[in-house]
Design a protein around this nucleic acid. Structure first.
Length: 302
DNA sequence: CGAATTTGACCGGCGC
DNA sequence: GCGCCGGTCAAATTCG
């Protein structure tokens, strides 16, 4: 089961976690998935609606690395010095790549800061205004997929220490104008308001696990782009996403079938990954899981 | 018939 | 103190 998860998830999340793990602490505090939506480097792209199997080289790499470890061990007996040199060179090249990635992320981060730290953010509303709503341009700039999202901390400043407020931007199908963000959780609508700065009504939802789960969300169409939904989440779920459970059951069933017949073949894993990633519930659950994972990581650090 | 949604009323924070 | 505004409540309505 763990192996299956690994195969299916590894090429989706691997780059994300790699970049996240190598970010400087100040950058990690930014806690923005927007870094992974940046278009300057495809390795940073975490387009959840893209079939991940186009990066097929990822899965064979896992197996290759296992084999090469064995080869390394045998060669280590024969030529330990050469082996160490080879290892050193390999690490150097990896460091170089990581440094390049880091520079790209730094550049994107600075661009974002320049773009949104100016007067636009300062002319906020007279009320509490815990967050800004001026990220539309960002999503428009980067929203080349059908679902673009980013998460920001409170106060609208990406470098703010994380709190329990996050925003998600979702580009909707133009044919589907219902103000619903499918994020894998079940919500109960408890109110709707037309706000002053946006003719589209804002819908208020509570997690249907309430009062056990304190999470609320607000959903409203973007002023500049009606096809864009802005979902503001407050609080953190204290339970698993129902979609995660569904996916877990699907994977468990598939794993039972596979292991009962033969060893796991690459094509079967690919087929399975392709099937479940076409499932909107899976992509939503994956997005929620990735965000949750990063937020947990952030919480541990703080 | 129960659950979910709608919608007008109400509440509290904030600026003037 | 008053009015504006965002957020919440709860009765009425709709839906499956």
């Amino acid at each position: 089961m763990i192996l299956l998860y690994k195969y299916v998830f590894i090429h989706l999340i691997n780059q994300t976690l790699l970049v996240k793990a190598n970010l400087p602490k100040t950058l990690r505090s930014a806690n923005c998935l927007e870094f992974f939506n940046m278009s300057t480097d495809t390795t940073l792209d975490i387009d959840l609606n893209t079939n991940p199997m186009h990066k097929q080289s990822e899965i064979p790499n896992v197996e290759f690395e296992k084999e090469s470890v064995g080869e390394r061990k045998s060669s280590m007996k024969d030529k330990p010095v050469q082996f160490l040199i080879q290892q050193l060179n390999q690490m150097k090249s990896e460091n170089k790549k990581l440094k390049e990635l880091q520079n790209i992320v730094y550049g994107n981060y600075n661009d974002l800061m320049q773009k949104y730290s100016g007067d636009e953010l300062m002319k906020t509303r007279k009320r509490k205004a815990p967050y800004t709503e001026n990220y539309d341009n960002f999503v428009e700039k980067n929203g080349n997929s059908t679902c673009s999202c980013c998460v920001e901390g409170s106060n609208g400043t990406p470098n703010e220490i994380f709190s329990n407020v996050s925003k998600v931007y979702v580009r909707m199908d133009p044919s589907d104008m219902s103000p619903v963000v499918k994020d894998g959780y079940h919500w109960r609508k408890y109110g709707q308001k037309v706000t002053r700065d946006n003719p589209s009504p804002r819908a208020y939802y509570k997690c249907s696990f309430a009062p056990t789960c304190p999470v609320k969300k607000k959903v409203q169409r973007s002023v500049s782009d009606p096809s864009l939904l802005v979902a503001t989440y407050e609080g953190r779920h204290n339970h698993k996403s129902p979609s995660e459970d569904e996916v877990s059951i699907e994977l468990s069933t598939a794993a039972t079938e596979i292991t009962s017949s033969s060893s796991i073949s690459k094509s079967m894993v690919e087929q399975m990954a392709s099937t479940i990633t076409r499932n909107p519930s899976f992509t939503a659950a994956l997005a929620a899981a990735v965000i949750e994972r990063i937020l947990d990581h952030e919480k541990e650090e703080n």
